[in-house]
């Protein structure tokens, strides 16, 4: 794998200590190289990397609004094409900017077949504004808008399956990834780059502030999600589904849930229910 030694995201950005999003962006840009134009939706990444008049980006970057990262990326891609310039366009948006607010723009870009990469960095809630639930918040998680307490259990709906919605668009490349598996992730980014047409990567990324764990455990938490089968690494290449990482021995979901404050309120019975759902999916996929 040809990985750039250069850093395309400068330090001095305002991310929390132990931020997973910046790890994801650094790895993606290392895989893509210098000849890249980035687009961001509103969200953590936009706020932490560009406190005006500063920017952490060492490549051309544009932000417009929360809902239109995919539409802006489409326009940039077409403009570069009409000028005869060969550069890769990549859009970064959080789970809120992807699963909720930016979904129609993303669907349109996928449908039109633009040659771009869209990476959703999924920390499973609106972290930048104070941990509000999004469509990608998993079942059971406590957030400020799905709190746990006498009247509420925490998030009572399952996580919206965005990568499969993207796959249903029939785009040539869809993948899931985790910041804790950098080689797997960067390989997928490079495959996405080689893809002629739209490519979608859903990057799972622990958040120390929103999930409630020590900042040093960001990578460990991402790894636990995959090792417990709570997050599955796969790719869909021209319609062919392939699991890219199978844990040697799948760990119990409890190990992942109990390491985070957002799941601390769950009873054993509720955790068993989550385990059963994970088991069902993993059995189907032979993990």
């Amino acid at each position: 794998m040809n990985i750039s030694e250069k850093e395309f995201l400068a330090p001095g950005h305002r991310a929390c200590a132990g931020c997973g999003a910046t790890v994801g962006v650094r790895l993606a840009l290392k895989a893509l190289g210098k000849n890249t134009v980035a687009v961001s939706a509103t969200g953590c990444l936009e706020v932490i990397t560009t406190p005006y008049p500063e920017t952490a980006w060492n490549i051309p970057w544009i932000h417009v609004a929360f809902e239109n990262a995919a539409a802006v990326a489409s326009g940039v891609e077409r403009a570069l094409k009409s000028q005869g310039k060969d550069a890769q366009v990549v859009a970064f948006a959080g789970d809120g900017g992807t699963a909720d607010i930016g979904l129609q723009a993303l669907s349109g870009a996928m449908e039109r077949g633009h040659n771009l990469i869209y990476i959703c960095y999924d920390n499973e809630a609106y972290m930048n504004t104070g941990v509000q639930r999004s469509g990608a918040t998993p079942y059971g998680a406590s957030t400020t808008t799905s709190p746990h307490g006498k009247e509420s259990f925490g998030e009572d709906k399952p996580k919206k399956n965005i990568p499969m919605i993207m796959a249903a668009h029939g785009v040539p490349y869809v993948a899931t990834a985790s910041i804790s598996f950098p080689e797997d992730f960067m390989k997928k980014v490079q495959k996405a780059k080689e893809t002629d047409g739209p490519a979608y990567i859903h990057l799972h990324q622990p958040c120390t502030t929103g999930w409630g764990y020590d900042p040093s455990k960001t990578i460990e938490l991402g790894r636990l999600a995959v090792e417990t089968g709570s997050w599955i690494l796969y790719e869909i290449e021209d319609g062919d589904f392939r699991v890219t990482y199978r844990p040697m021995e799948r760990k119990m979901v409890d190990e992942y849930l109990l390491a985070q404050k957002r799941f601390k309120h769950l009873t054993q019975e509720e955790r068993n229910r989550i385990q059963k759902n994970v088991d069902a999916l993993c059995t189907e996929l032979k993990i």
């Binding site: 200590a17 132990g18 931020c19 910046t22 790890v23 650094r26 790895l27 020590d214 040093s216 460990e220």
Partner: peptide, 29 residues
Amino acid sequence: ILFCPEGCINKDYDIDYDYCKGCGICAEE
């Protein structure tokens, strides 16, 4: 180097303390 959120460890493994926020991921990993 790969897991540093700041990208402030260079290829010679020198840590740039001007930017290191002390998250401890490097020590953990």
